[in-house]
Amino acid sequence: MIEYRSIGKTFADGTEAVGDFSLVLPSRTTTVLVGSSGCGKTTLLRMVNRMVDPTRGQVLIDDVDIATRNRVELRRSIGYVMQHAGLLPHRKVIDNVATVLRLNGVDRKEARDRSYAVLETVGLDASLATKYPGQLSGGQQQRVGVARGLVSDPNILLMDEPFGAVDPIVREELQAELLRLQRELDKTIVFVTHDIDEAFLLGDQVVILKKGGKVAQVGSPADILAKPADDFVRSFVGLDRGHRTLHVEDRDGVRVVVDGTGKATGVLEA
């Protein structure tokens, strides 16, 4: 379990990224922080592995204040996947993945074996292992990024817009892959995105943020759609634009689902 207790962050130049933020992220679920740029979502994510330290308040992992933990050790115990994969261009794919294990003191042989295994888990062919990241496609690099995040089998996985830089088809593939992995692996995932569709697809708990890390609403996707807290949320999730407000029309006994713009999107089964 991850808990933010009255977190605030003011950067050295005086900008307040986060005002007063509190939230509990239950274990073995995916929490998605979603909001426009400048809402502090990445800052909040990076507080979990102490890439950013809060100015006020505490972050707790399993009831331990992480300010008391060595930041390098803490980072080695948490998986991190970022946009553009962030792979080391001078290390082969397999070494990029094994790096985290080697930093944790796992011996070379075991690190290699486990890295090959996790490459397979994320759906990468073993023949790519000896290539350099620059020789891979964007989607493949992102899979390597996920493999690197998972290889040390951390309880917590932080994902900072991991699929933001790949094309829509590959993004859908990777999203489906992540859902499958999460069913198998049961990690506590904190996922940051600005894409509400992605948030609703992946999140058990979705946190919609306004500027300065203010929480507009927290809940399951269904809760948020059923009871949007205010007009900001209504607009952010698209309830004011028609494609989420569906109704059923009867066509010769078949119930066809039509959205607010009049477009037919599917049929309703019994």
Binding site: M51, R75, Y80, Q83, A85, G86, P89, H90, V100, L103
Partner: peptide, 29 residues
């Protein structure tokens, strides 16, 4: 050296000196 790569190395748990010698120096190569 790309700041994103350095950021990723920090997040993966490289200590400062490990990052300088194993990431910055080779990439500045």
């Amino acid at each position: 050296v790309s700041p994103a790569v350095l950021d990723a190395a920090t997040a993966a748990g490289f200590s400062t000196s490990q990052r300088v010698f194993r990431v910055e120096l080779p990439l500045a190569g």
